[in-house]
Nucleic acid binder design. Structure first.
Lengths: 341, 341
DNA sequence: ATGAAAGCGCTAACAG
DNA sequence: CTGTTAGCGCTTTCAT
């Protein structure tokens, strides 16, 4: 029967057991050069035998760092965020940090979690913020070294790691335009998200760069994490008059919802409709003729973000302005038809 | 530029600011009945104005709980585990706990993470263990309230939440047998995993229950989290002589790998081969004719597991023997053909 | 109704 | 080379 964690072995108990002072135990375990090799061995053996595990909270009170890094995400079933969690976990593991994961897609929950992370005195925070964090959230985060990831909010840290959202959608849309499509439907995140507005801008820019009027395009914007929104938007587009000849998405969740909706509606690509999907999950390759996608190096990005933060934490450097932008690759499969059909 | 977290407001500072004692501040914020309403209001206002956030580590030293729950998983990109993380996060959030996520698929990493969770003095742990945790891992976990999830190891806690692994594969295999298949390929986790051996047993049991010799079946067992294994195993099965007429998988990652391999090999279901897939991700519905799957209520299971642990933590009850088994549902889509073809 | 003081486990400054 | 001691921020007696 697992006893409560309160009954754990302390440094004092180890010390008493072998008849030395607590400080000797502390120093021996910290490999302090002033302690003799014999004593070190003695202490280490006793500590191991008694199952001594350092008490980090107690250590923290002496000014030490918490070895805790907060990761604030809107969702973890989204493959982007799962990838981020995995990469951040690897970063933390290598550097001896632990990951405290907070999942919040609403500002009030985000605020509560920020407060809890602050209460735990995390060493730093990586955050994919909600579009409009509360003043309290901002005030709390201000007191901790933190970095924004993917999404970006002016009121938070000037350090940001993201993708080139505008170029990403410009690229995909240009591909469809080059294939001859003029009436293109875009389903993406709402404009209050930094990613949403940048991606919509890229979508439109592809039109103007091709000398076309974006008015021929149809835009459906909504909450990017809501699969229901993607499905409904797709329904609406299919019933538009005239319906679009091509679809491009601006969020991973939306891509999944669109693929499912098309499958259910019995439409096949590229015959009935051309499709370019945001994100490149393995499953996208087995949809219909293979989905043509916009692939981003999320894993590398998250890793870079984590390492950057951790390095600054270790050196005690402040978090200054920093921007890191990852590019996008168009993965051509069958769903968007050939160029110039 | 974000200052180090060390400069946070303490209860003493709040006290000094309004000319009361630290203990008064502590009591006021804890809503102690002995403090006058006026003083409480005064303290609360000052605390809010100064941005005071309680120092949990300091609180812990007084014997308080850490409000931290460790979640040890082999992987988080696997949809099962992402779902578990999401559900556990929701549980923790409701109860005021925070989630420390550890990702480890090897026993030595698992041990290091267990030690780190112990060092952070987490209140409890939910673990999907590696098949053979080290003695040190066992010794550490013994000292913390913990529950096993999905996988099960005799040397850890007697509390376990999982699915009926044997029945699950019996069900899927029986479905294929009923459809007339005799030469069935099974690709699943190795036998050292509790889930791997139970699922294989279920696969075999379907044969004996139908009065058939399981020797006609082909079994490919390997690391369940390794997509490469699934792909290779599928390759091998397709080249077997004679090749199986049906495939059933015993792990989510493997299902994905198999679908991808079949797609690449240009085989279509159920014409070339019948398929029943373990797990029911949304993407499985748009593979070929729609994948017939074995669906498990992972979210409910994880939620039940989290709530069960948290309840015990709150009441200070020890973790005794407990088993909770969730059932499986066969989701019939097109990939397994009709019964009696 | 509030204040003073002890002590949780640890590290670092200060003795010896 | 090792021991003694103070103090981190908080809660909790014990004393006003």
């Amino acid at each position: 029967m697992a006893p409560r964690a309160s009954g754990m072995v302390t440094a004092r108990q180890v010390a008493d057991r072998i008849g030395v002072a607590v400080s000797t135990v502390g120093r021996a375990l910290a490999d302090d050069p002033r302690i003799s090799p014999e004593t070190k061995a003695l202490v280490r053996r006793a500590a191991a035998r008694l199952g001594y595990v350092a008490n980090t909270p107690a250590r923290m009170m002496r000014g030490g760092s918490s070895r805790l890094i907060g990761l604030m995400l809107p969702d973890i079933r989204n493959s982007f965020y799962a990838t981020i969690a995995e990469a951040m976990s690897a970063c933390c593991d290598r550097a001896g940090y632990q990951l405290v994961v907070s999942i919040a897609s609403a500002p009030d929950v985000e605020e509560r979690h920020a407060r809890e992370l602050a209460s735990a005195r995390v060493a730093g925070i990586v955050i994919v913020p909600t579009p409009d964090p509360t003043p309290q959230t901002r005030e709390i985060l201000r007191q901790f070294p933190h970095v924004q990831l993917l999404r970006r909010v002016a009121s938070l840290s000037p350090a940001w790691f993201g993708i080139d959202d505008e170029e990403c959608l410009r690229l995909g849309t240009a591909h469809l335009i080059a294939a001859g499509h003029r009436r293109i439907g875009y389903i993406g995140g709402a404009l209050q998200y930094s990613t949403g507005s940048a991606r919509r801008a890229g979508f439109r820019r592809a039109f103007t760069e091709a000398g076309l009027d974006p008015a021929g395009a149809i835009e459906m914007l909504g909450p990017p994490a809501d699969a229901g929104f993607g499905a409904r938007a797709m329904q609406a587009l299919l019933q538009a008059d005239p319906p679009p000849t091509a679809i491009i998405t601006g969020a991973v969740q939306v891509t999944g919802a669109v693929l499912e909706a098309l499958q259910r509606a019995g439409r096949s690509a590229p015959r009935d409709i051309a499709v370019v999907g945001f994100g490149d999950e393995p499953s996208f390759s087995w949809w219909g003729p293979g989905l043509t996608t916009l692939a981003m190096p999320i894993e590398d990005l998250a890793q870079a973000c984590g390492n950057w933060l951790i390095e600054r934490l270790r050196n005690g450097e402040p978090i200054g302005k920093h921007e890191s932008v990852a590019g996008t690759r168009l993965v051509r499969r069958g769903s968007a038809g050939m160029d110039r059909p």
